[in-house]
Design a protein around this nucleic acid. Structure first.
Length: 695
DNA sequence: CCCTGCGCTTTTTTT
DNA sequence: AAGCGCAGGG
């Protein structure tokens, strides 16, 4: 029973048994990467390393939860009551460090975490203040740059110093203001969770050493997707004990757009000269015909370490489906699944439908519902993206810290309470002028002259409301407080106001109750629960999995998710859909016209294919609605590459498709510049004949 | 101040 | 197709 080590092959066992050395595991898809880490943790503990001296880092919260569970299973009942190893994402780890030391960096202990929508607001404000027009620099652009800078450990000063163009200087100035605004509001963004930790460690060496000394072993999964701050933090933590085990696959690097640098995995041996390198190439997941297609596809990439995965023999070759448009594509796929489920050949949970972009999910959802197949939509619109959650979270944020402008402005007139745009405008103007948060303008008696009688009354009432709940906050349990809040602001009426259909209203109201309930379960389950902690967890871990996080996958449901979300998972049957030029590879990647961008798309496709254990079905539509218009498409080059048909005329066409499209783009840009109306041109694309599965 | 409707742009992937 | 800003009536 205890002899779980015997279930490993020699290479895997080597990883598990090399206990005191830097170790790099280069592991292909489906070779049991995560399994190896799990076993290694269990081995360390059974060798006497105390669990709390182990830090394991994964890429997603889901993976962390899964790994913690498996370690517990491996160790069995003897260790049930033992302390647990720390298994989390880099971001969650960063959050924990920051919570302890936020004061050192001038942040309040109850700082909030800003997500993308909040960031955009701050970016807008920052740009306004440096007097940048939308044309000069868009808020989305700014947060993109800031994110890149932060992941490289660059502060505003460093950014300004290295600015080459006017636009960069402008962005650097906006970055400085952006960061000031965040601090003023006691908020951090996602990147700060790493950036500030890195800063903290380099500013205070005693803290760094103390933190590094807490752990004796560091394990990192998906190492190919670490960005520079994660890399730096890992090095700082491991430099003393040198017990660093990283696992990754350069062929599965799909997050370079987010600052991931796959070079780290290639550089490992230089950083840790005594490192042991282990390669895992036995695939335990997929049938050989599937691997043949995946191998052939990824072998097209020029920048990679060559490897050949060996898999299970037998099984059927991948198939290709062709549809008229995206709706037909969904219909074909879902009907096929439904038919096989009805014949009891497969179960819904054996199947995953993988898409490149979130909006591809819609037609599939529709048809899954129509066919009455249970499905589980992963990602999509996340829990905290819904209006109700954002509103209530904003109330809570303001109660915790009224200096949080983004949250304050959100709820100031939600539900409508007579504070109109005019009033908000004046408030904002005052705040900018005095360089202070909006709340202080509210508090300041001098501001009274600024507003009319009605507005002033509304503002005072709002202020009283917040103050009242501030007073209650330490005296009531969080869910209790939220229930009262919902009641007092008459949020139910707001739900009724915003939505007309009874069904929608019901759904929205349910979300509200779920939110209150999740606060309740947070308070019950976490001993050191605080309202700020609840909000932080809420932003960091898309909290819609409150019921049973890991058993979701075991439920009887077809899984519908993006390729990015599918990383690390496996399914007996995979439908990889939307294989068209412009979608996979994505238009944005094609526009860059760099090998790197297209190679990442190819890896993404590779990741999708290698999720399949028994069957892989690829599909594309001959035409697709874009901006409401039906546009003809070109089958993805990846189809030809994977099928080994790069001499097929369609392959050339797929690749020429970009240049044709780029030419079109250039032409239409030129046309716009001349401000003349160009006559409509019809691109008559030829499409290859319907193809069937190859033997 | 609140609501409605019109016309405009805009669409990757996520912690 | 959907969200946002703007204009105009209640």
């Amino acid at each position: 029973m205890r002899r779980w080590q015997d279930q490993l092959n020699p290479a895997q066992r080597e990883v598990v048994e090399t206990l005191s050395k830097p170790i790099l595991v280069l592991a292909g898809a489906g070779t049991g990467k995560t399994r190896v880490i799990t076993y290694r943790i269990a081995r360390l503990i059974s060798a006497g390393v105390s669990p709390e001296r182990i830090l394991a880092v994964t890429f997603t919260n889901k993976a962390a939860a899964e790994m913690a569970k498996r370690v517990a299973e491996l160790l069995g009942s003897a260790h049930r009551r033992c302390p647990r190893p720390e298994v989390s994402t880099f971001h969650a780890y960063g959050l924990r460090v920051l919570r302890r030391h936020s004061a050192r960096l001038g942040y309040p202990p109850q700082f909030s975490i800003y997500d993308r929508a909040d960031q955009l607001e701050v970016a807008r404000a920052a740009l306004r203040e440096v007097k940048a027009t939308e044309a000069a620099l868009r808020p989305e652009e700014l947060i993109g740059w800031v994110s890149r800078w932060k992941s490289r450990g660059m502060d505003p000063q460093a950014t300004a110093d290295s600015a080459q163009t006017d636009k960069e200087s402008l962005a650097a100035a906006a970055y400085r203001r952006y960061q000031q605004l965040l601090r003023l509001r006691g908020a951090v963004d996602f990147d700060d969770l790493l950036f500030l930790v890195e800063k903290l460690f380099s500013l205070h060496s005693e803290l760094r050493e103390e933190e590094a000394a807490r752990f004796e072993h560091l394990l990192i999964d998906e190492y190919q997707d670490t960005n520079r701050s994660q890399y730096t933090i890992a090095r700082m933590l491991a430099e003393k004990h040198r017990n660093l085990c990283v696992v990754g696959d350069d062929d599965q690097s799909i997050y370079s757009w987010r600052g991931a640098e796959p070079e780290h995995i290639l550089r490992f041996h230089r950083d840790w000269p005594d490192a042991k390198i282990v390669r895992l190439e036995n695939n335990y997941r997929s049938r050989q015909p599937i691997l043949d297609w995946a191998n052939r596809l990824v072998a097209t990439n020029r920048h990679r370490y060559p490897k050949q995965l060996r898999g299970h023999d037998g099984g059927v070759s991948p198939r290709i489906l062709q549809a008229h448009d995206e709706d037909h594509e969904a219909e074909l796929v879902v009907k096929e699944i439904a038919a096989r489920v009805r014949q009891q050949k497969i179960r819904p949970r054996d199947v995953a439908i993988l898409v490149r972009t979130n909006d591809q999910m819609r037609p599939f959802e529709l048809h899954l519902r129509r066919q009455k197949l249970p499905y589980w939509l992963v990602g999509g619109q996340s829990f905290y993206d819904r209006k109700e959650i954002r509103d209530l979270a904003a109330y809570l944020k303001v109660i915790l810290n009224p200096r949080n402008d983004v949250a304050l402005l959100r709820i100031l007139n939600t539900p409508p309470r007579g504070i109109g745009p005019q009033t908000v405008e004046r408030l904002l103007h005052q705040a900018v002028q005095r360089l202070c948060p909006v709340w202080e303008v509210l508090e300041d008696g001098a501001a009274e002259k600024l507003f009319g009688q009605g507005a002033l009354e509304a503002l005072t009432q709002f202020r009283q409301l917040i103050l009242g709940f501030q007073h209650d906050l330490p005296r009531r349990r969080l869910d209790d407080l939220l229930r009262r809040l919902v009641d007092e602001i008459q949020y139910r009426r707001e739900v009724e106001r915003c939505y007309t259909s009874a069904e929608e209203r019901e759904r929205r109201w349910q979300t509200v109750q779920e939110f209150v309930e999740s606060a309740g379960s947070y308070c019950r389950n976490i001993p050191e629960a605080t309202p700020a902690g609840f909000l932080q967890e809420l932003t960091l871990t898309s909290y819609d999995d409150d019921s049973d996080p890991q058993s979701r996958l075991d439920q009887e449901a077809v899984v519908l998710m993006t390729l990015h979300a599918a990383k690390g998972l496996e399914f007996p049957i995979v439908y990889l859909v939307g294989l068209e030029e412009g979608l996979l590879p994505h238009r944005k990647a094609l526009e860059l016209q760099t090998d790197q961008a297209i190679e990442e798309e190819r890896r993404l496709c590779y990741v999708g294919m290698t999720r399949a254990q028994e069957q892989l079905i690829l599909s594309f539509a001959v035409a697709r609605h874009k901006r409401g218009k039906l546009v003809e498409t070109i089958p993805s080059r990846f189809l030809y590459e994977a099928a080994g048909k790069t001499d097929h005329p369609g392959y050339q066409e797929a690749i020429c498709g970009i240049s044709r499209r780029a030419a079109q783009l250039a032409r239409s840009k030129a046309a716009r510049r001349r401000k003349t109306r160009s006559s409509a041109k019809k691109a008559s694309a030829k499409h290859p004949k319907r193809r069937r599965s190859q033997p």
